[in-house]
Design a protein around this nucleic acid. Sequence first.
RNA 1: GCGGGGGUCGCCUAGCCUGGUAGGGCGUGGGAUUGCUAAUCCCAUGUCCGUAAGGACGCGUGGGUUCAAAUCCCAUCCCCCGCGCCA
Length: 421
Amino acid sequence: MMLDPKIIKEKPEIIRKMLQDRNVKFDLDSLIDLDLRRRELIIKTDELRKKKNIVSLEIASRKKAGSDAGSEIAQMQQVSSELVVLESEQLRVESEYARLAFAIPNLVHESVPRGADESANQEIRRWGQMPRADFAVRDHIEISQKLDLVDLERAAKAAGARFYFLKNSLVKLNQALINFALDFLEQKKYVLIQPPYMINKNAMEGAIIASDFQDVIYKVEGEDLFLIGTSEHAIAAMHSNEILEGKDLPLRYAGVSPCFRKEAGAHGRDQKGIFRVHQFDKVEQYVFARPEESFNEHEKMLAVAEEFYQKLGIPYRVMLLSSGDLGKVSAKTYDLEAWMAGQNAYREIVSCSNCLDFQARRLKVRFRDKTNEQTQYVHSLNSTLVATTRTLVAIMENFQTRDGHINVPRSLQKYIGSGII
RNA sequence: GCGGGGGUCGCCUAGCCUGGUAGGGCGUGGGAUUGCUAAUCCCAUGUCCGUAAGGACGCGUGGGUUCAAAUCCCAUCCCCCGCGCCA
């Protein structure tokens, strides 16, 4: 339901180590204790149910034979009332156990550098040439204001901070990125998916961990519905409670959807512009893979993302996140950080994660090769291909011209029919 | 939204009216037999607890009635058919 419950029972020290590596507080001892009590109660209630089944059979056969079953029925009443008490206790312990167990972060893969925060992230490689301008470069806010491509003030009026109206050619450039990304992934045989933009609690809990709910997820008032923070959330739940056929794996999906995020706790960071916003469009890679294939798939997804930015001509570096900077559901994550000339810095634009069986366990996504085989949980992986707003920032800042215009990357030109904005 | 039908252990299906251990077919694995990869027959094929023996649970979900619920009652979700409304 989270991690393999066997680990809680048999090897809690693995979890303890992981919590330390992640620099995360979690009441593991309570969980271990609850697991013990939970199993004791299962044994006791099973015992009572067994008794009940035996007496029930006796009653049935007596009734059939036409003889009196009065004392057996009295016995059943006794056992049933005992059972009611124990069952409610069991339910209480079980749900407390589940609540805690659901909050445990994922294991951390051995290849992940250990460290308390992003300062321990490891740079893997760099690609591309940073643009060298012989003029004063502007940031994307200035560029977009000047060309009338974004209206932040009016968006604040209509919606609030961290919203935007895209205008004019930037609308088309945004669509161009989406279309280019979809064509790109379709060519690589990904199955195109446009998911529901709202999903229910059960589905959402499968993809993320409780604490993320408060910080990133919007709830729809009066409905059991939540706005997706990425198509990953919806696609993760797509095959919930299914047993997939081994021969169908890996399933590679290209999700396209708007993404909605609260960005709570990001006060003051990237306050202006469209870099960090409550809503943006994204094309996402999501893969269900066999466990033994998942790290291969992970590298492949990263390579696909890199190829995409190479085609756009955006310089980037690949970072391997340290244990302390890793998301809670991920066991290993690479970030692509694009060079943003206007900020003179690399900034995150892609996050590529292997979640192992963490999400699959929560959502019961299993597979097997033969119908009589034991089922196994699949591994799930996700990676941004393009989150449009951030990539638009990179394009505006890196491809700006001396006179304040923007050169359109060659691979996008056919989608907007123009080489310059 | 209204009316009708449905949801059973991977898939298909019986059982529900009339409460008393969920049966069959397919698929898959193993075995038997036959000179042969065909036919036939036998066994196995969900989850949890338990070192094991064994046991419990499982009929969309949640409640209720009952000594006992797939079966009866209530609520709820989803799917199909028809009607209505609608971009």
